[in-house]
Simulated assay, not measured.
Amino acid sequence: MSYRLSEDLEMLRRTVAKMAEARVAPRAAEIDEQDAYPWDLKELFAEQGLLGAGVPEAYGGTGVGLPAVCLIVEEIARVSASASLIVAAQELGLMPILVGGSEEQKQKYLPVLASGEQICAFGLTEPNAGSDAGSVKTRAVRQGDVYILNGQKCFITNGGIADVYTIFASTDPSKGLKGLSAFIVEKDYPGFSAGKKEKKMGIRGSQTTELILENCPVPAENLLGKEGDGFKIAMMTLDRTRPVIGAQAVGIAQGALDYAVNYARERVQFGKPIASFQGIQFMLADMVTRIEAARQLVYKAAFLIEEAVQNGTSPAEISRFSSMAKLFASDVAMQVTVDAVQVLGGYGYMREYPLERMMRDAKITQIYEGTNQIQRLVIARTLLD
């Protein structure tokens, strides 16, 4: 199966690309330098309806689906990975509600998240529970009509600025993964706070913090699904959002390639543009080939997932293609950005040029939403089982 963008999706791509060049690109270096969340761009994306692209119209979104979310993220990531994460993180944070929430929960939370009136975040990772979700120590104990949550989360994108968090906590530690449950936690609940803000290598315009829950009462009605559904909801979420990270990686790589190509045409050595040298040409040829292969895989995964919502495609196939898209595209982004820096030589290493930022940004795509080692495990297991 190959993908073919509809006329509406092509129009969306062009519109977002034009907006990104005009409004995001001029801010990209400043966002990285200031290490601050770009609220102005969040408002811009909200005004354009980009934060609700993955949310059905019935819940206040535009309902254009996962391929559209990937297109939006890719085009923004071409100029700023940090800015693209505004859209990607919103999709990740609201997805547990979309796939695991009751009708009442969806009606309450999704419209304000789709409109961008509120920001959301996904809270699974802990100091001792990254890839090993079964080691989550955050505890949720039922007391009447509330659950009391205690624990700590780390590396949470949008931590401290989000209004709504999907938090994973164990309701029965003796059951391991089967004892994990998911909750909707609002920022103003007593006992809920953000810890230190992390100082990161890349995506510096995205705020990443610890989350602390100290005897935090969460209404029982905020439990997503039923007790023990947490791991299933987390995996359903990641199956649907990993292609978005793949799209972010493709965007970063494409932006790096575009810059390297333009530079190679203009940079003169030995009396001619370096683009005329076979060594440079071969590098560029390999870069563009890898990017296009990654793009095809990302959008195949996105369209497959979109089809699955309608036709009930095998969950194993969804998991496999979702992980393959994220794995391959992020590895490509890392390789392409490193090679693009090499094309510029010493200039590529300087902060005056955007490629060192793109290289730093690319690295996280190999780590978050499941390290690439975990993606390989998922792919192998779905293949062998």
Rank of each mutant, 00 (worst) to 15 (best):
S2E: 15
R4T: 15
K18P: 00
R23G: 04
P26E: 01
I31K: 01
W39D: 06
W39Q: 13
D40E: 15
L44Y: 00
A46N: 10
G49W: 11
G49R: 13
G52E: 11
G54K: 09
G54Q: 10
E57Y: 07
Y59N: 12
Y59T: 14
G60H: 13
G61A: 12
E75K: 11
S80F: 12
A83F: 13
S84N: 13
S84K: 04
A88I: 12
G93R: 05
G100Y: 10
G101S: 11
S102M: 14
K106M: 12
K108M: 09
A114K: 06
Q118G: 04
N128E: 13
A129V: 03
A129P: 07
S131D: 13
S135D: 10
V136K: 09
V141I: 14
V146N: 12
V146H: 15
Q152I: 14
I156Q: 04
T157M: 12
G160I: 05
V164A: 08
V164F: 06
A169M: 00
T171K: 00
G176D: 08
K178A: 14
K178P: 02
K178F: 06
G179T: 01
F183Y: 13
E186Y: 07
P190C: 03
K197F: 00
K197P: 00
K197Q: 10
E198A: 15
I203A: 07
R204D: 02
R204A: 01
T209D: 06
L211M: 11
P217K: 02
P219N: 10
E227Q: 13
G228K: 08
D229W: 04
G230I: 10
I233E: 08
R240L: 05
R240A: 09
R240I: 04
R242S: 05
R242H: 11
P243T: 07
A247H: 02
A247E: 04
I252F: 08
A253M: 04
A253H: 01
Y263S: 03
V268Y: 08
Q269K: 15
F270T: 08
G271P: 06
G271C: 06
K272I: 12
P273L: 11
A275I: 15
I280N: 05
A285Y: 03
V288I: 15
R290P: 00
R290M: 12
I291T: 02
R295D: 07
Y299H: 10
K300H: 14
L304N: 00
G312F: 05
T313M: 01
E317Y: 03
S319A: 15
M324T: 00
S330V: 09
M334C: 12
M334N: 11
Q335H: 13
V343S: 07
G346P: 05
G346Y: 02
M350W: 05
M358T: 05
R360E: 14
R360D: 15
D361T: 03
T365Q: 10
T371Y: 08
N372W: 07
N372E: 06
Q373Y: 12
L377Y: 11
L384W: 09
